[in-house]
Design a protein around this nucleic acid. Structure first.
Lengths: 210, 210
DNA sequence: GCCGAAAAATGACGACCGTCATAGGAAAGT
DNA sequence: ACTTTCCTATGACGGTCGTCATTTTTCGGC
């Protein structure tokens, strides 16, 4: 047979898997310490590899950063899109808002890339169109879950996204946990139109036992 | 603002002046390229000095970063506080919002340090208390300008600040000028309760496609 | 005009970073 | 089993970064 063995090969493609592992490692580290805060050395170590082999998978660190930002944003957009389609509007909105503003999501590299990588990618002129697409997807998904007239919903989605992003940025800045929680609660209340009910799993601190 | 009239020492205190110059240079550069994106070399060059003398003024780059963040945030808080006291509520609110969300303020190192340095300082555990104080000052100033009952105003201030910060972060991310303007407009409308009227100076120009 | 103190410039050091050439090693085809 | 072909690891290169010891310049007081 001829050597036209393209992507049709049924093998697991180790290369693609490693590529993905590096991408995920970089995603965690970049969100935690900033793109300029970690070197390819640390990224490869996090991925369980050594620094030298990096350039077999990415043309440069800048290319990695662009792909990381693009991938994370696209994942967020896809997740919101899925939620916005498969659920009732109000429930979908609550799921999106809760997943975004839960205090657990504020720490470390688990929160939305918009809040951690936003300023980083804003300074670079790389892969802007992909970022724009992902941003548009998030806005559309959000608009789909919001009540009101269609014409008005996009504006409300822009406002809601701004509020949620800003709330996470602010909550991450302060070491005052009470203030951080107030900010997140205010944002959730604003977007949902009503206060977010506490998660029954871990509200045992103050809530009266029934 | 008002000149810092030194005490009766009589000495011009050149040291304090250069300290200030370094601080301002670092403020511009850090906001434009991130704290990890510029070295002390570039900071000193921006201040018109050479890199070696840096450690006569700051113990380390980390100390400089902390002082920069603290100073910029405090200036923002003081400015908002002044506006919130010397003006009528509604006019003060419009001045704050307009000064924050004007498209000119979104680019380069002229925008609020919350949006550019926020994630950077969130990753460092330095001078958190000073940041908390400045943040509290901004929230209080904003609450003073908002309508409604006093009990509710703090919550609305948290929401408004989140919205404005997030809007600038989002607007800075995209190269789509129309989307950026939509985000800023939506945020301004949300905070003010009504659309912001365009600046008559440059409302005629429909931004050229670039 | 000179002197002593303070500030800035010089130059160098280790460490780290991004990059790449090259060698080693594991799977797949014959 | 052998070879071919990818991946991965090794190691090294220039460059930059943060830091600091040392020298040179500046400037007020004698």
């Amino acid at each position: 047979m001829t050597e036209v063995t393209t992507e049709q090969t049924g093998k697991p493609d180790r290369r693609a898997a490693t590529h993905q592992r590096i991408l995920e490692a970089a995603g965690r580290l970049f969100r935690a310490h900033g793109i300029d805060g970690v070197g390819v050395d640390a990224v490869m170590k996090e991925a369980g590899l050594t620094h030298g082999g990096f350039y077999a998978h990415f043309a440069s660190k800048e290319a990695l950063a662009a792909e990381v930002a693009q991938t994370l944003l696209r994942q967020s957009a896809e997740r919101w899109d899925r939620i916005s389609r498969t659920e009732d509007r109000e429930i979908a909105l609550e799921r999106i808002v809760r997943g975004y503003l839960e205090p657990d999501r504020v720490v470390a590299g688990k929160c939305c890339p918009l809040t951690t990588l936003g300023p980083d990618v804003a300074r670079r002129d790389t892969s802007r169109t992909a970022i724009r697409a992902a941003l548009g997807g998030m806005i559309d998904a959000l608009a789909r879950c919001l009540p009101g007239l269609a014409a008005r919903r996009r504006q409300r989605a822009l406002e809601a996204l701004s509020t949620m992003v800003g709330a996470v940025v602010l909550a991450r800045m302060t070491d005052d946990d009470a203030l951080a929680r107030d900010v997140l609660d205010a944002a959730a209340t604003s977007v949902l139109g009503r206060p977010i009910e506490p998660d029954p799993e871990q509200s045992a601190t103050v809530s009266p036992p029934k």
